[in-house]
């Protein structure tokens, strides 16, 4: 059994075990389980509906940006800078997309890995960058939307700097680990 198998087993068992503990504990404490559970479940509906306007607004704006070709122009602009950290130009459009659209980035990563191979420099950097951060704008729209917060203060800046750190780290680690040099 590999480390990954152990990890998968933990992931599969964690939630059912938590459910068992929560329901068992509530039963022991004589909580009216069915009515309490369904009362809580009602919140799920309102939360989902609450985030719709924020999510639609953010996704549409990102959708327009994505289709316009502006991101490619931006990539050409920053390519000389990112090549300093050993980031191949082919990875850049994906790296920029990573902050905006999870689905878009996943598609581009799949394309890169298919074209250049899973064990190529480009394929590896894209894979590591994909796995090491989240879609900043999507997360912020959903979570702040769920409580109606519109002034997110420094969250965008911190999230994007985190994305940048993820890209730099991905390039440096892959280049060092597999000896691609800079």
């Amino acid at each position: 059994m590999s480390v990954q198998d152990v990890f998968n087993a933990i992931s599969t068992w964690a939630i059912p075990v938590v459910i068992f503990i929560v329901v068992g504990y509530a039963l022991a404490k004589r909580v009216p389980i069915y009515s309490v559970f369904t009362t809580g479940a009602k919140d799920g509906f309102s939360t989902a509906v609450m985030i719709i306007p924020y999510l639609v607004a953010m996704l549409c704006a990102i959708g327009m940006l994505r289709a316009s070709g502006a991101m490619d122009a931006f990539c050409n602009l920053i390519d000389p800078i990112t090549s300093l950290i050993g980031c191949p130009g082919e990875v850049l459009p994906f790296a920029v997309m990573r902050s905006f659209s999870g689905g878009g980035a996943e598609g581009m990563m799949t394309e890169l890995v298919t074209t250049y191979g899973t064990q190529s420099q480009i394929g590896r950097i894209a894979s590591v960058a994909m796995g090491s951060t989240e879609t900043t704008f999507y997360i912020l729209a959903v979570y702040f939307g769920s409580v109606g917060v519109t002034n997110s203060r420094h969250s965008v800046a911190a999230g994007l700097l985190g994305d940048l750190a993820s890209l730099i780290a991905s390039c440096v680690i892959v280049n060092l680990l597999w000896g691609y040099g800079f």
């Binding site: 504990y25 809580g40 799920g44 639609v56 953010m58 996704l59």
Partner: peptide, 29 residues
């Protein structure tokens, strides 16, 4: 994207409802 925004949000309802129920149980117990 307007459509997918609604799809994502509505797709959350089921799991949201289940886990909100579970969390309510945690609070009450």
């Amino acid at each position: 994207f307007a459509q997918s925004g609604v799809d994502i949000a509505l797709g959350l309802i089921g799991t949201m409802a289940f886990f909100c129920g579970l969390m309510k149980l945690m609070e009450e117990s």
